[in-house]
């Protein structure tokens, strides 16, 4: 994990998150995406991405987070070769870009298809543009991809008549036409209803289960927390933190919350036990839990006669991590 701004996170040895499947044999030493000093300065002088050092381990589900306008999409466009960086290097799957791309499926900034073609004709069109896909079994591939996202019934319908959710799913189907080692999804749940969002999440989990690395950008932190093993947080074109979710949470330790009428007494005990940042307010005492076991703390409180009405450990959400790192709110409306 690297920390570039208010240094609150400790650097730890890389650790594989429990949910991550074993990485595929990879000549690049287990990294699906590596960027070094990746920078994009647009012609107007505006720096969209500033010295990005990012490593996405193979087999991970990597959440690429940040408010709208923080440089996520520009980064993704650079990774996919759509936009030329003005500085730094990047590598996908340890291969030169042209050779890596056939093994990379991508949804960039929402779906885009030919409105006058049917769903399956649209997929055939993009399949024809992939030099690693042969024309012979194209129809079978398209059928399978449509089935996977649940669009088989609408295969013959014109794209123009698709709903937003169907369009989003067709884009994912296009990204899944051939077997991929890396899937790049830029805001895949934008515009989806809760049911559609759940479906996409399930699909991402399933794809990751096959060993495919998934790189998913989002401005919805809660959503990423539910499906990712790793995350990187962008702010103003800079990567302010990245690592496994555990590491990110570790930086901002969980807080213990004790509900009790004996405020002062409880606060004193917590402080004497060595818990930091003890605060009492209303009917609650809170403190940083650190390495303490909450059950032991509770036992001690009760032993010394504190009436404990409730006790909880609040893990900070990624949003709180973000606010802590950047000192600013995570403005979803951007």
């Amino acid at each position: 994990m690297t920390v570039e701004s208010p240094a609150e996170l400790t650097v730890r040895a890389p650790e594989r998150a429990p949910a991550a499947p074993p990485a595929a044999e990879d000549p690049a030493g287990g990294a699906a995406i590596v960027t070094r000093g990746l920078t994009k300065r647009f012609r107007g002088g505006q720096v969209a991405v500033d010295g990005l050092d990012l490593t996405v381990p193979a087999g991970s589900v990597f959440g690429f987070l940040g408010p709208n306008g923080s440089g996520k999409t520009t980064t993704i466009r650079m990774l996919l070769g759509l936009v030329a960086p003005t500085g730094g290097t990047h590598e996908l799957l340890g291969l030169p870009l042209a050779r890596a791309l056939p093994a990379v499926g991508a949804v960039v900034e929402g779906p885009a298809f030919y409105p006058y073609l049917s769903g399956s004709a649209n997929l055939l069109r993009f399949d024809a543009a992939n030099p690693a896909a042969s024309g012979r079994d194209a129809a079978r591939r398209v059928g399978r991809a449509l089935e996977r996202v649940g669009l088989s019934a609408a295969a013959g319908k014109r794209y123009r008549a698709y709903s937003l959710g169907m369009r989003q799913r067709l884009a994912i189907a296009a990204a899944l036409l051939t077997p991929r080692r890396l899937l790049v999804l830029d805001e895949p749940t934008n515009g989806l209803d809760p049911q559609g969002t759940r479906e996409v999440r399930a699909l991402v989990k399933e794809i990751a289960g096959d060993g495919t690395t998934v790189f998913v950008s989002s401005h919805l932190l809660a959503e990423v927390e539910q499906m990712c093993t790793h995350a990187g947080i962008m702010s103003h074109g800079r990567l302010v933190a990245h690592g496994t979710l555990t590491e990110l949470h570790a930086g901002r330790s969980a807080r213990l919350r004790v509900e009790t009428p004996d405020l002062a007494h409880a606060a004193g005990i917590l402080a004497s036990l060595g818990l930091a940042d003890v605060r009492a307010a209303g009917e609650e005492v809170t403190a940083e839990l650190g390495e303490h076991a909450p059950d032991r703390v509770n036992a001690e409180l009760v032993r010394q006669g504190v009436a404990v009405r409730g006790l909880a450990v609040a893990r900070p959400s990624l949003e709180e991590v973000f606010v802590g790192l950047t000192g600013e709110g995570f403005d979803v409306d951007g």
Binding site: L80, L82, A106, V108, F113, D127, P131
Partner: peptide
């Protein structure tokens, strides 16, 4: 129509 980005990442 935005299809250019998908043709290029296909990669055509």
């Amino acid at each position: 129509t935005g299809t250019l980005r998908y043709l290029l990442t296909a990669p055509a």
